[in-house]
Every structure is written in structure tokens, then in C-alpha cells.
Design a protein around this nucleic acid. Structure first.
Lengths: 201, 201
DNA sequence: CACGCTCTAGAACGAACGCTCTATCCGATA
DNA sequence: TATCGGATAGAGCGTTCGTTCTAGAGCGTG
């Protein structure tokens, strides 16, 4: 049976076992990376057992990590979409998005960076599934920004290229902010991206 | 005795043992991350023994990783300085730097990303020494760009903020290029950074 | 020659790793 | 009630991890 309603005290206790495992994997790999996170640690944190993990993810750690990346992908997709939907002006929306990310990063005491990046880095040679899931996440985010820019009247090429740089810069600035334990890189990046976008009007 | 002249066939065979260990550690962690790289693998790759590794780095893996990051820091510092010294125009120099990074990334078949990022990510909670070394690398790079911008007549605040975004964007674009196995993100980022810099003249 | 010091060499330790395996539980169905 | 299959449970496998430890090699100095 699938214990969809769990009495335990965990944060995701009301979720199904599979979902709890994915969330724990995503959160842990976001902080410790793929190699730094053990399957047993994930199962412990999720309030599940090793048997359950391998029941839902017979492909083992790689399959679970790919699913965790898709979870992180969805999380940032929601944040990005919310920012883009918040205003008609793409420049303003991107700056707002940078602010949201900065806030979340600070709130986690500079520990929770980008889950997709943290999980996928260093796995290039050994786990192509993980790389593919991460590349798809980046592509989706870029597509969202590109669509917004085109809807705002930007030319096709400008929109495509700007969307690339928006995602690259946000990603890099989050990394820099995390390392420096300071939200300045993200806030500055947000302002600069807005300025860059405006220069194409 | 220190075998400063080694007869072995390795690439760094002519270097001292300590230097060979640092280079092997830097290269391996650049590709596999901190947790994904073992001390024994490093010693094997360096043509050294475990005893030598712990002789030169009594602080163990963490101390070695911090030194590897400083090595990677120096590598990119050289690349960046060469680009900045290549022309008086900071915008042009940054675009050229992006091109150099893209070329190197492609030449490694998209495996050799930023050694500092790859080594330091995911170590926030467990290895503060590594985080500090990485943060110092970012700060040094930013300082180089900032200095160049000020020398070119940019205002103090503009130079400081632009330097932040230049480093963030280069870092993020390298990540994106590596994931997509495509140098486009880096080349686009180079052009956009040049445009952004020019907009402050 | 003897001593000391730096460096090399690798066996061995306990712990943790990813994963396999069998056993059991329990609601749904017949 | 008897049966079945999804889900849970965790002991145990072989391997690798980071680290420690002792032994010895090769050189300069007294």
C-alpha cells in the first residue's frame, strides 16, 4: 500500500512516499551535490526505507537524481513564471526575479543554491541522464524568458540571445552570491540585465 | 629526496611531486567535483603515492582541494589578464575572454568547466576552507576587471558593479555552454557584456 | 661512517558507499 | 476468507572511501 497520509512529524509527511523521496533528494543534492549525497541519507531524511527508494527508482541513484533535477526545474520554473507574469515589462520582471532568488538564498543562510546546477555539476562523464535533465531545465527557463520578450515586441534574434544571457547571468550571479554570502551580485545582475534588455527597445 | 626530475612519461613528469599532485587534483576535481574525486585517484594520476600526498598535505583532502582551487584561480587569472592586456577597450577584452573560454571548453569536449566552481560547489556546509579559497578567486577576478574599467575611465561605482556582472555572467555562461555542449551561450554573453559596458560610456 | 631529515612506499583500518536480496505487511479483489 | 501484488523493511554484499601507520630510500652534514 502507498501511505499517502503519513502520521510522522516530517515537513512533507502528508505526501506520498515517492514524492517525499524526490523532495529529500532534491534538497540534499542542492546542498551537497550528487556525489556528496548518499542514498541512505536520502531515505532517512525522507522517512522512507532503502527498499522503498529502490522500489520507486529501480535505476538507482542516477534515476533518482534525474528526477530530483526535474523537481528543481519545476521549482524555478514556478518562480520565473510568477515573476514574468507579475508585470508587462520583461526588464522589470527579470530584476524582480533576481530579487526573489536573492531573498531565498539569504533565507537559507546561503546554503540553497540552484538545485539543478549543484546536482548536475561534475557528473558529465559518468551520468549523461543527469546532464540531459539539467540541460532541459536550462532550455525551458530560457524558452520562458524568450517567449516573454517576444510577446513584449522584441525581435526574434534579440529575444533568443537576451534569453540566453538572462539565464546565464542569473545562474552565475546566484553562484557568486552564494560564495560571497552576499546578495549584491544578484541584485546588481538584475539591474544590469534590465538595462541590457532596455537597450534593445 | 625530492624527485624534481622524473623519468616517467606523464605530462607533468618534469615537475616536482607536490606540483604534480596539485595539478592532478585540480584537473580531476574540475571534471568530477570534490566528492567525486578520490585521494587515491589523485595520487595515481599524479604518479605519486598516498604517502607523498599526506606528506605534502597533512590537512588531507580539504587542504589539497583548497590548493587545487588556488591553482585554478591562477590559471583563469592568467587567461583574464592576457585578455585584458590585449586591448585598451575593456568591452572588447571581455568579449575576447569569453571567446577564449569557449574555445578551451570545446577543445576539452565540454568536460573542463571552471575548476573553482566545480571543486567548491556542494562543500558549503562541510569545508569552509574550500569556500573561502573559491570566494577569494572570484574576488580577485572581479578586482582585475574593475581595475581595467577604472583605468579606461569608468566611474568608481560603475566599474565595481560592471565587474561583478562580468564575472557572474562569464561563470554562468560557461556552465550553460557546458551543459548544452554548445559555445553559443558564452559567445552571446561576451557580446552582451561588451554592449552593457559600452552603455556606461 | 653515522646520523638526521625529507620524501617515497603501500599495507591496513574502520566507516560509508550503492545496491541486492529475502521477508513481511496490508488493502484490494475474487 | 484466500489470494495477490504494490509497498515497506532492513540485513548484508563487495567495494571504495579518507586516513593512519610503519618501514625504508636517498641525500647532506658532522
Amino acid at each position: 500500500m502507498n501511505t499517502t497520509t503519513e502520521a510522522g512529524p516530517g515537513p512533507d509527511a502528508a505526501l506520498g512516499t515517492r514524492e517525499r523521496i524526490v523532495r529529500a533528494a532534491s534538497r540534499l543534492m542542492q546542498r551537497q551535490g550528487y556525489e556528496g549525497t548518499g542514498i541512505k541519507q536520502i531515505s532517512r531524511e525522507a522517512g522512507a526505507t532503502l527498499g522503498s527508494v529502490y522500489h520507486f527508482f529501480p535505476g538507482g541513484k542516477q534515476e533518482l537524481a534525474a528526477e530530483a533535477i526535474r523537481h528543481g526545474d519545476q521549482e524555478f520554473t514556478d518562480i520565473l513564471r510568477a515573476a514574468l507574469d507579475g508585470t508587462d515589462d520583461p526588464a522589470e520582471a527579470i530584476a524582480a526575479c533576481a530579487g526573489t532568488v536573492a531573498e531565498a538564498l539569504r533565507a537559507s543562510d546561503w546554503v540553497d543554491g540552484c538545485p539543478v546546477t549543484a546536482t548536475s555539476i561534475g557528473t558529465a562523464e559518468r551520468a549523461p541522464d543527469i546532464q540531459r535533465a539539467a540541460a532541459e531545465a536550462f532550455a525551458r527557463w530560457r524558452g520562458l524568458v524568450e517567449e516573454k520578450l517576444r510577446a513584449a515586441g522584441f525581435g526574434e534574434e534579440s529575444a533568443y540571445e537576451l534569453a540566453h544571457t538572462v539565464i546565464s547571468t542569473l545562474e552565475g550571479a546566484e553562484l557568486a552570491a552564494q560564495l560571497a554570502r552576499d546578495e549584491a551580485p544578484l541584485l546588481i545582475a538584475g539591474r544590469h540585465l534590465a538595462r541590457l534588455i532596455d537597450s534593445y527597445r
